[in-house]
């Protein structure tokens, strides 16, 4: 079978999850809803909706990390924890000139190959 997916390359996205029975939101993916105990089968995702976690968010805390692990070539990098408008939170990389807790940010997803192994999807929080 010919794989047509390569003709349809999209921006990288990171999914969040919604339990259809009770409406609870999750990131990262749960195996069972902590509110109503609905199970999620990662293969069928029956009973669950997925949506892209992106857009406006607020910075809860941040750090500039100097001792980066194996694979990273930059001198230092910023990281942060953000909260989205739907209440979900995520940790990721931060690229702003003057980070301040509580500042409004915009979240996108990039593909990163800094760490050894396959490329991975990374949240990038910018102004």
């Amino acid at each position: 079978m010919i794989d047509f997916s390569m003709y349809d390359q999209k921006e990288p996205k990171i999914s969040a999850y919604k339990c259809q029975k009770c409406g609870s939101l999750y990131y990262p993916a749960p195996m069972v809803c902590s509110k109503c105990n609905t199970r999620r089968d990662p293969e069928t995702n029956k009973g669950w909706e997925t949506f892209d976690l992106e857009g406006p968010c607020t910075l809860l805390s941040w750090t500039r990390l100097w001792n980066l692990p194996e694979g990273y070539t930059k001198k230092n990098m910023l990281f942060g924890i953000v909260e989205f408008e739907n209440g979900l939170r995520a940790s990721g990389q931060l690229e702003v000139d003057d980070p301040k807790t509580g500042m409004s940010l915009h979240s996108t997803v990039i593909e990163s190959n800094e760490r050894p192994g396959n490329p991975v999807k990374v949240f990038l929080f910018t102004e």
């Binding site: 990262p28 692990p69 194996e70 990281f79 990163s112």
Partner: peptide
């Protein structure tokens, strides 16, 4: 490498893959 190995205890997709480490969480 040591920093990377210790970081493997974090959530693989949602923390480790982001480039975060234990000192990173300590800082935040």
């Amino acid at each position: 490498l040591g920093t990377d190995y210790v970081a493997t205890m974090l959530h693989t997709d949602a923390e480790y893959n982001m480039g975060l480490t234990l000192p990173g969480f300590g800082g935040m």
